[in-house]
Design a protein around this nucleic acid. Structure first.
Lengths: 321, 321
DNA sequence: AGCGTCCTTTGGAACGTTCCAGGTTGCAAT
DNA sequence: ATTGCAACCTGGAACGTTCCAAAGGACGCT
């Protein structure tokens, strides 16, 4: 009562209690409070990969908005490993967080659905498995189209894709790539190699491309980390970007923006997505919303220095010029 | 009992309970457990700046080692703001974490000391305020000496420092810089500008240096983020690194290692520090250690492409050549 | 003086666990 | 049959809070 600044206590007693608190180094026990109040005002956030700077932006958006709305935030990570992620989520749930944000989780749909049965859940950059959880994605298909369109506008036709692995967002980007290639009548030029959404993965993917008898003139990487890895591989092989090969990423993370990297990429508004995720949770927790929400935010193209026209006029294989 | 895999229950009952658990979507309540057991097996980690990739390495070390020792980990951040950091720490404490890791905290010593009275605390990259908490730092003084020595060995004499602000580690690096300059008889050449341990700060610091009537031949930035910001400022001003100015950072974060950045820097073994921090905590929690531990790990020089000899022979003001 | 009202204080119960004491059962040895 | 002893089960207390009901005091009104 005293600690919560409520009335119903005489000033004298209140002062005495405050003094005792100070002396004993007393601190309210959040577990006891949580037990009896049946809510914690804690939001749990499982971030699949804390090492990816893109999530730095997301985390900071979450933190800011949660503070505004009177929630405390606890983070967790699963290091991109489904099993660890699952137990990270379980830990948060056992702590009885009032809401859960899953940033690009790699766990089975079933795990998310199960969590959704206990507590409001917002999934970032992946579709919700059912109507018990909300989702908040950027429009990965539109984003990939933007990327391909940009490359095509420079005259590229042989556009390879370094894919991001089995993660949900990664799968959609892969589909988007194939679709976009189709739109421009380029499905026969499509090549994909794997990249696992990491720098190393991107490096390896690019290395694979380098073994091809003729290198694509442009490469679209499923995320910026991948793109940067690919960049390294290409330059180690003596190629110059964008003269020998154009390169475009996805996310627009802080690394991409570094002057020395200056990667052309598709921007995903991470900070904004973090804030919105908290809003969705708050609607369910504090305002009793029950209908699912599936927001899609629009990505945008950020042109920097890694894309340009192909070195030679593309062979106009399908055109009658 | 059943959920903890203990004996004393018949197989038949055990199976029945397991089925019921499944059906009811039951999940043990960690708060109730924590209340009665008087321990949580949770380690709380307050990271001052989740956006700094250096902490990515620390976090991943913590995570890995904690998993091995049967601890769960919960992260928090204070966004480099003392007040927010303080409440982040308080939140963790109210949750009754069994141990606390503070990664480069910016709060007052008093806050750390108070936390230390309630629970084992390990402070990373900052000295412990008293004997109730452990500390784990890299040898910032040795690291700064390494940096200055490297620059001096190239013949640099006018070596500026972009400082990191009021953070504890930052202060020590500043002192180390001045000391090292003294060792090489260069105290009169010392110039420091502020940089706040962020990219923006580094950019601004470098901009200040550019206003000087004669630019230093080398710049030592208090951390890599700063150095990268400075790098941008210098190149925007048309200078080439390391020809016009040498640049060295501190941390050896992932960005520094990027081929395109290729920043010469002082390596701090973040992953290793994270693991050790968990070990220190475990010693106090599980093995009852009470004497304080103040580990210092050795930093090392990583030479990359941003340092080289000064463009002109340094004026040999003190030498008789 | 008696009464009602409001303000403050006190004393449980409850939250979901763990732990322990004591109880009940089954079964073998006497 | 009785006893002893496991093995298993049951019930209650405790953890640190919040909330509510009820008791106690102070005070003004009749």
């Amino acid at each position: 009562m005293v600690t919560r600044g409520e009335s119903g206590v005489s000033d004298e007693k209140r002062r005495a209690i405050l003094v005792a608190i100070e002396e004993l180094n007393y601190r309210p026990n959040a577990m006891a409070q949580g037990l009896v109040m049946r809510q914690t005002r804690i939001l749990g956030v499982m971030v699949s990969n804390l090492q990816n700077p893109f999530f730095g932006a997301v985390v900071s958006g979450i933190q800011a908005r949660a503070g505004d709305l009177g929630f405390r935030v606890l983070f967790n990570t699963g290091d991109r490993t489904p099993l660890i992620e699952e137990s990270a989520i379980e830990n948060l749930l056992q702590l009885r967080v009032d809401g859960l944000i899953l940033a690009s989780p790699r766990v089975d749909d079933e795990v998310i659905a199960r969590a959704g049965r206990s507590v409001p859940v917002v999934v970032l950059n992946r579709d919700a498995p059912d109507d018990t959880s909300d989702s908040l994605t950027n429009d990965n298909v539109a984003g990939t189209h933007l990327a391909i369109e940009h490359l095509v506008s420079f005259g590229h036709r042989r556009i390879a894709f370094i894919e991001g692995g089995a993660g949900a967002g990664a799968r959609i980007r892969r589909r988007g790539y194939l679709q976009a290639m189709g739109v421009f009548d380029l499905e026969e030029e499509a090549i994909t190699v794997s990249g696992r959404h990491t720098e190393d993965g991107g490096y390896q993917g690019a290395t694979e491309l380098l073994k091809l008898k003729s290198l694509p003139t442009a490469v679209f990487a499923s995320n910026d980390l991948c793109a940067i890895g690919a960049m390294n591989a290409f330059e180690e092989a003596g190629l110059s970007i964008p003269d020998d090969v154009s390169l475009i990423g996805y996310d627009n993370n802080r690394m991409a923006a570094l002057r020395h990297i200056s990667l052309t990429t598709i921007d995903q508004p991470g900070d904004h997505m973090g804030r919105s995720a908290v809003d969705r949770l708050s609607e369910r927790i504090d305002k009793g919303r029950t209908e699912p929400s599936h927001d899609v935010v629009a990505p945008s193209l950020v042109v920097r220095s890694t894309t340009g026209p192909p070195r030679f006029e593309p062979r106009s294989s399908h055109r009658m010029t």
